[in-house]
């Protein structure tokens, strides 16, 4: 899944290590998420979004996630 984590880190001048420590994961996890090799859990996505003061949708790209909407 595409994310804006690397972009936001650069904008706020934060290293992967610092972000990892702040959200309670290893640096390798942040690397994997940035490289789109691993998809963060809902809780981790929430922590990352909260850390950057934004929403999950703003950081994670859900455009490729297919979902059927309720018929009105």
């Amino acid at each position: 899944m595409k994310t804006r984590i690397a972009e936001l880190r650069k904008k706020h001048k934060i290293t992967q290590e610092e972000l990892a420590m702040a959200v309670g994961v290893t640096r390798q996890t942040i690397t994997s998420i940035e490289r789109e090799k691993y998809t963060a859990s809902l809780v981790l996505a929430y922590k990352i979004a909260k850390y950057f003061g934004t929403t999950i949708e703003d950081i994670f790209d859900f455009s490729e996630v297919e979902v059927e909407e309720i018929k009105k």
């Binding site: 990892a20 420590m21 309670g24 994961v25 290893t26 390798q28 996890t29 691993y38 963060a40 981790l44």
Partner: peptide
């Protein structure tokens, strides 16, 4: 302690 906690509870490691 925090590093050890992270090491043991990292979600990617669990995955």
């Amino acid at each position: 302690l925090k590093l050890l906690y992270i090491e043991e509870n990292d979600e990617r490691e669990k995955h």
